[in-house]
Design a protein around this nucleic acid. Structure first.
Lengths: 117, 117
DNA sequence: GTATTATATGAACAAATATTCATATAATAG
DNA sequence: CTATTATATGAATATTTGTTCATATAATAC
């Protein structure tokens, strides 16, 4: 942010002060935006969709999503870091599943919105 | 998608076939991802947060979000194209507001998720 | 030990995107 | 008409991000 911001005209002082008080913190806004950013990619959305009903290994996910093992592995790491999915290892195979109901809920509210437009 | 995908190993054939049937269409996945992409930016999230309680003009939003008129105007266009906000003009001033309850609901479910981690 | 298989990951590249700057448009006031 | 103000927008730039390719790791079988 630069100094030029000072030049800004505030047209509705009262409303603005009221709204400013209701704003959530920059940190929370940032975290929420980062969360939605993760949902904002087709490959990751497909992964979440696939994991909605079953836990799956990397190969299975790659096949279902019509993507490569490497691409999926990269995306699984992102989803895991965001704690949206969990994993468990069985021999060479790693099984992934959704971390909690929230993930499915966010996915579904997104679908609902699109279908209602 | 390339040919190399044919090399993929499918480890759990039965599960995979079941999941494949439950997948939503690529078009819907894409649209939902595009929707979340819009929520996946701090500036736009701030705008949505600001508009949750009042309709606001561009200058007000710029001031509240601590951003510039130009940056906000660009982001408002994106939000409008996605039909997440509406606008009405009164003289020189354009007032923006959230398009429907869904937008607020998505915002809030995101906040909930973050706060519960 | 070696070979094979499932997964992970680093680097490179391409594509997408947010902001800035300059400027255009539109509405009003004088 | 001109000046001013609120908003919009095109182009340029910088940053972020997703995929690919090559390769590394880890587990198992032989």
């Amino acid at each position: 942010m630069k100094d030029e911001l000072c030049e800004m005209t505030v047209i509705h002082k009262e409303t603005v002060e009221k709204v400013k008080k209701q704003m959530i913190s920059d940190d929370l806004v940032f975290d929420v935006a980062e969360l939605f950013k993760i949902f904002g990619d087709s490959t990751r959305m497909k992964i979440i969709c696939a994991l909605k009903n079953s836990e799956l290994c990397v190969c299975d996910i790659a096949y279902i999503t019509n993507s490569t093992q490497s691409a999926i592995s990269h995306q699984l790491r992102i989803l895991k870091q965001a704690k949206l999915i969990r994993s468990r290892k069985e021999g060479k195979v790693v099984y992934y599943s959704l971390a909690d109901d929230h993930v499915e809920k966010i996915f579904e509210i997104g679908c609902e919105h699109i279908e209602e437009i």
